[in-house]
Design a binder for these strands. Structure first.
Lengths: 338, 338
DNA sequence: CAAAGCGCTGCAAGCGCTTACATAAGCGGG
DNA sequence: CCCGCTTATGTAAGCGCTTGCAGCGCTTTG
């Protein structure tokens, strides 16, 4: 088993062919379960491949067939709960389907442009999954002309398939929940207005919030809205702003769980308690929301990665025409913070 | 710019050669800054490549040169703060150095074996980074005979280069800190004894804890030690055990921040407060430790990924012989929980 | 019984690069 | 002025696969 070929444990298709007493073409066909291979031959080849620990070279395969069986996933940052959850979901499906997964962190518009251009030009992947990276027109153009399979997660792009949550509904459900709890002064911690990432997400959720207030005959008080970075610190700072008000809100809707964590910390630092002095809720279904008692709206992040990967594989394997837009359901989880 | 070649935006080296009026060999050399290319020629080639948006096909390059300029990183799970932090650090360095990054989740010993075998046989990467995945002898054998560059993070493996923290010291420092705070009944939340992942980590940290107690003339009371899964829930359950004791510890050393989060939740659920009723500290430098006021030992996880990647690139590029074992410093961060 | 069809296999031409090796200039010294 | 050396470029042989096509032996059919 240890290095039978003397080439670093690596056997080529020719070694297998020699061992099985057939041509390389037959080996290739047998190992890929193509038709027109006698079952006795297939068995001999399979055994030879197994005993040589043969695995087809992905690069050679790519070069010859035009398909790399690799997909690349781009996220704004890697060290974030949200994106690692997506990654985990996608990886599970892709490895299961025999695809390899490359990752890239794409933190700026420039990096995004370079990423797209490189993906199109180098063609090292058959498909792309872009997570929370709204594309510029030029980038869309390049991708459209590239015959790469493209899926987006977290933002809509008419040219490509996408996996989405209904952020409008999320905003409404959250606000409704706080309203049901008796709150009438409901604040909101939104994302940075000109945040280059997660573009439409905060906008839509905030819009849902406004809609729900309106439908209850309330008006969205701009004074109760504070924007910060989509992060723990952003939430903390924004919350501090709201708590400084003469008449602060009795409940706050944070647009992400991490912002909500920050808000809870800010609240605690001011000597206030949750939910008595101020109720707080977030969105995401963060794994620490349970432990911190945070009410949240679970948007099944891992599932988004799973679905996108599954559909992308279907697209690349040409089995079925996958749905162009898939909505992942989200659901309210009520905990102590409200 | 949009699809000048009519081939999905993809130009080959031949297109560039034609555009620059030279042979493909010259293009290849010019674009890789090899010597013996006239600077005028190099410029013409560079311009042609730019205007065609040419990027060498990585697979063709791999096939021809034997080097893939790809590294693969294997982690037990992807959706975990720790591993995503490592990933982020490694990705930043690798992409900077022109390497692509493939990832694999390797949750079981079987998966690990398959991963190693596949990496060796398919040879799709030049190098491997194994994070917290102690290798079996057979796997070490395969890798040794494979001329893949191998780096390990979080565990020692004499055959390969590794990036480590001094877990013994971490255990000592943590215990010392609690001792300094006046605690004499110091409990510990350790990892599962037969946890197939993060093998030696809990063992070493617990050993440091014991050493420090001993050096202060105390004995490690086995009754104050409780093992659970290296996770929030694991910490919570283990802490619940300790709190049920007739004479519970006044301070608890959790072997990871996530366990500490669980422990804090358990404490709160019992109506006790931190640090007055029981002090708690963790290890990691988790991004939510600050917000939760958790005293921790920052082990600079992202930095571990950075260093491993940087050294691996040096190894693969053959520039310098990288150090075989690199220790990342860790430092105590004192917060409200103690 | 010849022709046609089918199942299985081999041959060989690439896929887009890299890299030995060959070749062609240009240049200075004997 | 020729030889040998250096420098710049081209030629072509792969790298390890896939795949269109041809070919072989059989069975089926008119």
């Amino acid at each position: 088993m240890t290095d039978p070929t003397g080439r670093g444990g690596r056997a080529t298709i020719e070694d297998v062919a020699a061992a099985a007493g057939v041509s390389v073409a037959t080996v290739s066909r047998a190992l890929r379960d193509l038709p027109n291979v006698a079952s006795s031959t297939k068995q001999r080849v399979t055994e030879a491949a197994l005993s040589l620990n043969y695995r087809a070279d992905p690069s050679a395969r790519h070069l010859a067939s035009g398909r790399s069986r690799n997909v690349e996933i781009a996220v704004p940052v890697l060290n974030s709960w949200y994106f690692s959850e997506v990654l985990a979901g996608a990886e599970a499906v892709l490895s299961e389907c025999g695809y390899s997964l490359s990752i890239s962190a794409v933190p700026t518009p420039t990096a995004r442009f370079d990423f797209v251009r490189n993906a199109v030009a180098s063609r090292h992947a058959d498909g792309l999954i872009m997570v929370d990276l709204p594309l510029a027109d030029l980038e869309i153009d390049m991708l459209e002309n590239s015959n790469l399979g493209v899926f987006t997660i977290g933002f809509k792009c008419p040219s490509f398939h996408s996996v989405l949550v209904d952020n409008l509904a999320i905003g409404r459900i959250a606000t409704e929940h706080l309203f049901d709890r008796g709150h009438r002064r409901i604040g909101i911690l939104t994302g940075q207005p000109n945040d280059s990432l997660r573009f439409t997400v905060p906008k839509d959720r905030a819009e849902g919030y406004r809609q729900m207030l309106t439908s209850h005959g309330l008006v969205a008080d701009p004074g109760l809205s504070c924007s910060g970075h989509f992060s723990v610190d952003g939430g903390r700072e924004a919350m501090n702003q709201l708590l400084k008000l003469d008449d602060p809100p009795t409940a706050v809707f944070a647009l992400s769980d991490e912002m909500a964590f920050g808000a809870m910390a800010a609240t605690r630092d001011c000597g206030l308690t949750t939910p008595d002095d101020v109720a707080i809720m977030g969105v995401d279904g963060h794994y620490l929301a349970e432990i911190t008692g945070l009410t949240t709206i679970d948007q099944h992040v891992g599932q988004q990665g799973v679905v996108a990967a599954r559909q992308l594989v279907a697209l690349l394997d040409g089995a079925v025409e996958p749905a162009r837009q898939i909505e992942i359901e989200s659901n309210l989880i009520v905990r102590g913070s409200t």
